[in-house]
Simulated scan of single mutants.
Amino acid sequence: MWFKSLVLLSALVSVAHCDPRLRFIFYFGSTQFIETAEFTAANLETLNAHPAFQRNIRTVMFHYGVGQSVSSSPVFDIITSYLFNREYNFVVVSYESNNVVSTDTAVDLAEGIATSLIRLFDAGYSSGNMNLLGFSLGAQIMARASRRVQAISNRRHIIGRLTGLDPFNIGPISALRIGRMSSADAQWVESIHTENPNRGDHSSTGHVQFYFNGGVSQPQCTQISPISRWDCSHDFALLYWSESVRSSVFTFPALQCGSWELYTSGACNSNSIGHVGRTTESNLRGSYFLRTNLSPPYARDTALP
């Protein structure tokens, strides 16, 4: 009886948080013939019945950053990379206005995503097969949504994988309200760092964290304006991830190490190697550092500095 009451309460909470701003766009087809199906917070569970949706494989749900949309160049690159890969169901959390996503709306948006996901899981899709992927503030929103899935469902549903692409530095005040990404947010949590501290947050980590070129700035970003350099380094998290998704093999080898200084000195050359990307080994723990090429393909063949 208590279980039925819990399920009913969960359903009532879900209905109460059907945020009308949320759109979930399911992408399928190919890079040449992209097809989409759109769902809302009120009917995401019907995604299970879509003929192109495969219920037994992993689903990646991606949330972009502030001021972006599905037509933004790096976001569209993520979309086409997953369509090229074709090993996953791929869904984008989207909004009609580019101005919706902010630290002021993050808590409500995460709540709407969480309750929508619970509807999907209660309809039969396994939460363990869900990979929440977020960039910038989108990473912090997805981290909170992942935590809320656990809390609202009383841990009946726990997200399988949470990936933060340069999680946004929301500052100490917003962090108290929104929370930061951590290893408690999902079964396995990874973070990718390309900028700090103006855009990226090195305090938002997971079971494993990867620092590209030290994680403070990217060598390809040589703009005169500091703001442009910060934005460029921040956005490179999307470019690196897209490249990893398109690869059919392990890519972006990195060395486990305590700091960038130790990595560049060669002190970690005998340490374990991990790989960044969709094929990342889920048993990795700790901090990993790596260098990249200055032009595509950015992934090097070696983890050595």
Rank of each mutant, 00 (worst) to 15 (best):
residue 139 A to P: 07
residue 186 A to H: 06
residue 141 I to D: 04
residue 229 R to K: 15
residue 130 M to D: 00
residue 244 S to D: 06
residue 29 G to Q: 09
residue 71 S to E: 10
residue 183 S to A: 15
residue 150 Q to L: 05
residue 160 G to S: 07
residue 78 I to Q: 05
residue 48 N to A: 08
residue 172 P to S: 15
residue 63 H to K: 04
residue 199 R to H: 11
residue 56 N to I: 00
residue 34 I to P: 01
residue 215 G to P: 10
residue 153 S to N: 08
residue 290 L to N: 06
residue 67 G to S: 09
residue 78 I to S: 01
residue 267 A to R: 13
residue 30 S to I: 08
residue 79 I to Q: 04
residue 80 T to D: 04
residue 64 Y to N: 09
residue 290 L to A: 07
residue 288 Y to K: 03
residue 163 T to R: 01
residue 29 G to T: 00
residue 48 N to I: 12
residue 134 G to T: 06
residue 253 P to L: 10
residue 258 G to H: 05
residue 224 I to E: 12
residue 88 Y to P: 01
residue 191 S to W: 03
residue 250 F to H: 13
residue 54 Q to I: 10
residue 268 C to R: 00
residue 106 A to H: 06
residue 32 Q to S: 13
residue 191 S to A: 15
residue 304 L to K: 12
residue 172 P to K: 14
residue 167 P to H: 03
residue 118 I to D: 03
residue 77 D to K: 12
residue 91 V to D: 01
residue 138 G to T: 05
residue 289 F to D: 08
residue 108 D to A: 15
residue 39 F to E: 01
residue 106 A to M: 04
residue 88 Y to W: 09
residue 56 N to W: 03
residue 279 T to I: 10
residue 140 Q to D: 06
residue 226 P to V: 09
residue 223 Q to W: 03
residue 30 S to P: 06
residue 80 T to W: 02
residue 221 C to S: 10
residue 56 N to M: 07
residue 103 T to A: 12
residue 118 I to R: 07
residue 151 A to P: 00
residue 40 T to A: 15
residue 174 S to M: 11
residue 9 L to Y: 00
residue 144 R to H: 02
residue 60 V to K: 13
residue 200 G to I: 07
residue 110 A to I: 08
residue 302 T to I: 10
residue 213 N to Q: 12
residue 35 E to A: 10
residue 177 R to S: 13
residue 172 P to C: 11
residue 262 L to K: 09
residue 67 G to T: 08
residue 74 P to T: 08
residue 43 N to K: 09
residue 45 E to K: 14
residue 136 S to E: 01
residue 272 S to I: 14
residue 45 E to I: 00
residue 31 T to E: 13
residue 52 A to L: 11
residue 221 C to A: 09
residue 138 G to N: 04
residue 64 Y to H: 15
residue 9 L to G: 00
residue 270 S to Q: 12
residue 240 Y to I: 02
residue 290 L to M: 15
residue 135 F to V: 04
residue 46 T to S: 15
residue 60 V to C: 14
residue 142 M to G: 02
residue 226 P to C: 05
residue 179 G to M: 10
residue 259 S to K: 05
residue 81 S to Q: 06
residue 178 I to N: 00
residue 299 A to W: 12
residue 90 F to L: 09
residue 276 V to P: 01
residue 187 Q to K: 13
residue 103 T to L: 11
residue 84 F to S: 14
residue 173 I to G: 02
residue 195 E to K: 01
